[in-house]
Amino acid sequence: MEIGLSHYLILSGLLFAIGIYGILTRRNAIALLMCVELMLNAVNINLVAINRFLQPDWRIMTGQIFAAFVIVLAAAEACVGFALVIAIYRNLNRINVDEINLLKW
């Protein structure tokens, strides 16, 4: 038996779906941020595997470069998300998304 692209796609699909489940069920801002990280990792698994299996020449690593930029995005998102959590704390002293309802959802 060999590991092919299908295996990686199914694994990343599973990870992505778990992330979506978390997004829909969680209410805590930090927990939601973690679910987004899961989804971004699914993307990265996909990109790297596609790059390996579908690109005949290993030196053309478009997928890996793409994945590196996704990591850049994740870092930026985490740092801004963290700052927003702090700002919300300062103003409201609460962090669960559905407890915040000055504005209707």
Binding site: A29, L84, V85, A87, I88, R90, N91, L92, V97, I100, L102, L103, W105
Partner: peptide, 10 residues
């Protein structure tokens, strides 16, 4: 204004 940071969070 709490509304502002909350809006940004959403």
């Amino acid at each position: 204004d709490p509304k502002s940071s909350e809006a940004a969070m959403k």
